[in-house]
Simulated assay, not measured.
Amino acid sequence: MTLHNFPREVACRAFPLTLKGSARVWVGSLAPRSIDSFGELTRLFLTQFMASSRRRCPSAYLLTIKQGEDESLKIYLSRLNKECMIIEDQDEKITLVALLGGVWLRSQFMAELARRTPATLREFMDQVNNFINVEDTLRALTEPTRKELEQAENK
């Protein structure tokens, strides 16, 4: 929410409406009439929550994120994507190198990458999505359903 050309008093009263979670609880716990200005509210807010803010990381940090041996490709990509959100200078080439270098070396997908290494992030994402779709389809076709397991147990 942006308030342009409004008096500071309006901004001070509207500010709590933009918050959620612990920030909203904190503002609600302030004693009535204990804040004299929006500047003071700003200072108190920053002092309260500065330690919990996430630090921005350089894009080279992505190179440290690796897929675990028992971690699915889907979960690895999700975890890396979360980390991409805190990168200050995202670069597509570094992201691609991080993804290629982070895939578990003995995974089936690594064999796929060895056959056809993508040159762009878009190619990588297309390739990984196709691989995950095939994996999910095969898992759905080969895993016995709950009903089949119950029938086998009843025999």
Rank of each mutant, 00 (worst) to 15 (best):
P7T: 14
F109Q: 05
R55Y: 08
F131M: 03
L100D: 09
S59G: 02
L63V: 04
P16D: 07
P58M: 01
F6L: 12
T47E: 11
G21S: 06
D70L: 05
K66C: 06
D91W: 04
S59P: 03
D126L: 08
Q90K: 08
L105F: 12
F45T: 10
W26V: 15
H4Q: 09
F49H: 01
E150K: 04
L3Q: 08
R43H: 13
T117Y: 15
M110A: 13
L44A: 01
I87S: 08
A152L: 15
L105T: 14
I35R: 01
A140V: 14
Y61T: 14
F131A: 03
K93F: 14
E92N: 15
M1L: 11
T117L: 10
R24V: 08
A51H: 08
G68Y: 01
S59W: 15
I35C: 03
I65F: 06
E83S: 01
L41T: 09
V25N: 10
E123F: 10
R106G: 13
A14W: 00
L113H: 03
A140M: 04
S107E: 00
L46Q: 09
R54Y: 03
H4R: 15
Y76W: 02
K155W: 15
M50H: 14
N5T: 13
S37N: 02
S22E: 15
D70Y: 12
R116Q: 11
F38V: 11
V103W: 03
E9R: 06
E153M: 09
R115V: 11
E150V: 10
D89A: 04
L41Y: 03
P32E: 03
C57S: 07
V10I: 13
M50V: 07
A98N: 05
T137N: 12
T64Y: 11
G28P: 07
R13H: 12
C57Q: 13
T120V: 07
C84R: 03
V25W: 15
R55L: 11
F45K: 00
D36C: 08
L99Y: 00
L113P: 08
Q127N: 05
S72Q: 04
F15S: 12
D136E: 12
E9C: 11
P7I: 11
Q67V: 01
T137D: 07
K155L: 13
L63S: 06
C84A: 12
E40N: 13
S53R: 00
S29A: 12
F45H: 02
W26H: 02
L3G: 10
H4L: 09
E88V: 11
E148D: 02
L62R: 04
K147I: 14
L19Q: 07
D89W: 00
S107M: 13
Y76P: 00
L17E: 14
L62W: 02
A31K: 07
I65Q: 04
R56V: 09
T120L: 01
T137Y: 06
R115K: 08
R116M: 10
Q90L: 15
I35M: 00
A98S: 05
P16K: 02
L17T: 03
K93R: 12
F45I: 00
V128M: 02
V27I: 13
V25E: 14
T42M: 06
L113C: 03
D36I: 07
L113D: 04
F45A: 03
